[in-house]
Design a protein around this nucleic acid. Structure first.
Length: 258
DNA sequence: ATGACGCCGGAACGGCGA
């Protein structure tokens, strides 16, 4: 087994151009983070702030205009294996995958599923189907891997403040939770719950109605680990302090160390 | 409480987010 710790993190940044300084500051305060997975960069590849590459970091993006978009920022060079999720044909930039230090990491931004009616919701389930198919491929190859990012699902009733969502919201619909559980049944492990089986942990607080002040949050940013990576799991942290900052994203960073 | 807040595009305010 690899004795050197490896730390990877996920952060839905809600526009990288609006919050590049937060990411820079955060990376300076977290030298242990080898790879940062960003979601909702909300810009095209060419608009991603140059400051990261200019300061010696390694950047890969799967961007698009105005909406969605994912990116990887690494301390060391890495290889991008996929810029889209195989089998997910919808033209939104929601997945980028790398292999680094022998670990495959899929950085994902799942559709919210509340807009676009039943078609919009079907797109969310279609992403889950493609993700399960990708998991099958990686499991069969016996790769140590992780899916990390904004899953836009609260897996159980313990993963949201009781008044934060209406009962038919796409983040808590039974089909959404079943799709998440299906990945667990395939053998993937919800890294936070492996270490903290019970208790309320949130990664998102709405901008509205003083949600952070009231701790009316959601746990929707997750890391699902393959069996071989789960054996190596050392810690899972939620950087809640980031939410209290001026001009914060509505999501906070989560860190996994193996 | 189809609202609040905050991003984007494009230069006002609708679309989208969760």
């Amino acid at each position: 087994m690899n004795a050197t710790p490896f730390t990877f993190a996920s952060w839905n940044i809600n526009s990288i151009r609006a919050r590049a300084h937060h990411v820079q500051d955060w990376l300076e305060r977290h030298p242990e983070c080898d790879l940062l997975c960003l979601q909702e960069i909300k810009c095209e590849d060419s608009q991603f702030p140059a400051v990261f590459a200019e300061t010696g970091l390694h950047v890969a993006t799967s961007g698009q205009k105005a909406y969605n978009g994912v990116a990887l920022i690494g301390r060391r060079p890495f290889t991008v294996t996929h810029h889209t999720l195989p089998g997910f044909e919808h033209p939104s930039a929601r997945y980028i995958e790398t292999e680094i230090d022998g670990i495959t990491i899929g950085n994902l931004y799942l559709p919210n599923g509340n807009s676009g009616g039943e078609d919009g919701y079907a797109t969310k389930l279609a992403f889950f189907d493609a993700l399960a198919a990708r998991a099958r491929v990686l499991l069969d190859a016996e790769k140590p891997f992780a899916f990390i990012g904004d899953f836009n699902v609260c897996p159980t009733s313990e993963d949201l403040a009781s008044t934060s969502l209406p009962p038919d919201d796409a983040l808590i619909r039974p089909e959404s939770r079943a799709a998440f559980r299906r990945l667990e049944w395939m053998g993937l492990t919800d890294a936070l719950r492996a270490l903290y089986p019970t208790g309320r942990y949130y990664t998102f607080w709405d901008y509205q109605a003083a949600a952070f002040h009231r701790n009316s949050g959601l746990r929707i940013d997750h890391a699902l680990l393959s069996p071989r990576l789960t054996e190596r799991l050392k810690s899972f942290e939620i950087d809640k302090d980031e939410r209290a900052k001026e001009k914060a994203s509505d999501h906070v960073p989560v860190l996994v160390t193996v």
